[in-house]
């Protein structure tokens, strides 16, 4: 539960704040009003629609060799997974998968560090802060494909080769960083400035304050930024399309498969990438829980 609280940042914080008055949830102090049932039904339908299609392709990816893109299942097999990693027809899945993970790792590290520093800077007003803020918003909302092509052309004009670890890295950062900084804003808004002053009062240098006070306190929020950085990069398509050079990343590979491949290996790929996504979510949320647990354990010894 604690992990969820931290991962959700402001939402959870607000929720926690309102917990003390949960008894006061107004419309429905006496029994549930009819709106509750209507909304609960809508919510349930939404969740079913959210997960239903995904679950169906996970099931279909275990389709028998005779089976097609739709139900019914003609039997269970791992044929399409095998197909995915062996067939030339489906392209370089393994290589692109490899690149995507490496790229996402790079993007994650850079996003966490840069967003953290920007978050520190944005805690107070300074000359030009609004310009930078809108620059970030602009970078966030600009059409990704247009920026990707601009980046590709820029590299071309400068006589540089586009590659996934240069131009695509930068193009993805222009999308993950504004996101990361916005998350950082929400995380920072819960940081009490008095902690920093107390550290200074006790003789900590600015660097010691960051290392011993700010980073440990914000750690769960930083993990959340990392989680954003990783998944946004791992799924990024539009900005990467024209900047990745001659070698594909995984979403680009999937894209070309959707245009060429009409077999359940497409679903198998979906299943594999989703497993990776869930692993990353698990690692992210797990490490947040671990941080919280360790803190709680530090406290438990005194009981």
């Amino acid at each position: 539960m604690t992990m969820a609280k931290e991962a959700l940042g402001p939402a959870a914080a607000a929720r926690r704040r309102s917990r003390s008055r949960q008894g006061a949830l107004a419309p429905g102090r006496k029994g549930r009003p009819w709106t509750f049932y209507v909304l609960a039904a809508i919510f349930t339908l939404y969740v079913v629609a959210l997960y239903g299609p995904m679950i169906s392709i996970y099931i279909l990816s275990f389709q028998d060799i005779r089976g097609g893109l739709v139900f019914p299942m003609k039997g269970l097999s791992l044929h399409w997974f095998n197909d995915l990693f062996t067939q030339v027809r489906t392209g370089d899945v393994k290589g692109s998968f490899d690149r995507s993970i490496k790229l996402a790792g790079l993007v994650t590290v850079i996003t966490v560090v840069v967003s953290f520093l920007a978050g520190l800077a944005f805690r107070r007003r300074f000359f030009g802060d609004t310009v930078i803020f809108y620059l970030m918003i602009g970078s966030l909302v600009a059409p990704g494909l247009v920026l990707g092509i601009g980046t590709g052309l820029l590299f071309n004009w400068l006589g540089l080769e586009t590659a996934w670890y240069t131009s695509a890295l930068g193009a993805q950062l222009s999308w993950t960083l504004p996101f990361g900084v916005l998350v950082m804003f929400a995380v920072m808004s819960r940081f009490n400035k008095a902690w920093e002053e107390a550290a200074r009062d006790l003789g900590a240098t600015p660097w010691q304050t960051i290392r011993l006070v700010i980073i440990p306190i914000l750690a769960p929020g930083l993990v959340a930024v990392a989680l954003f950085g990783f998944t946004l990069s791992y799924d990024e398509f539009a900005r990467t399309l024209q900047t990745s050079g001659s070698l594909n990343t995984l979403p680009l590979e999937i894209w070309s498969m959707t245009l060429n491949v009409t077999s359940p290996s497409l679903y198998a790929l979906g299943t594999v990438t989703t497993i990776v996504s869930f692993l990353i979510i698990g690692i992210g949320l797990g490490s947040i829980t671990l941080i919280q647990k360790r803190r709680a354990r530090g406290g438990a010894a005194g009981h």
């Binding site: 299609p53 995904m54 392709i57 893109l69 999937i254 959707t258 989703t274 996504s277 979510i281």
Partner: peptide, 19 residues
Amino acid sequence: CTVPFWTSNIIRMISWIPL
């Protein structure tokens, strides 16, 4: 509600095809 956000958009889109 938020978990699918962390998974691939393209895959989520393709997943409508069998439906």
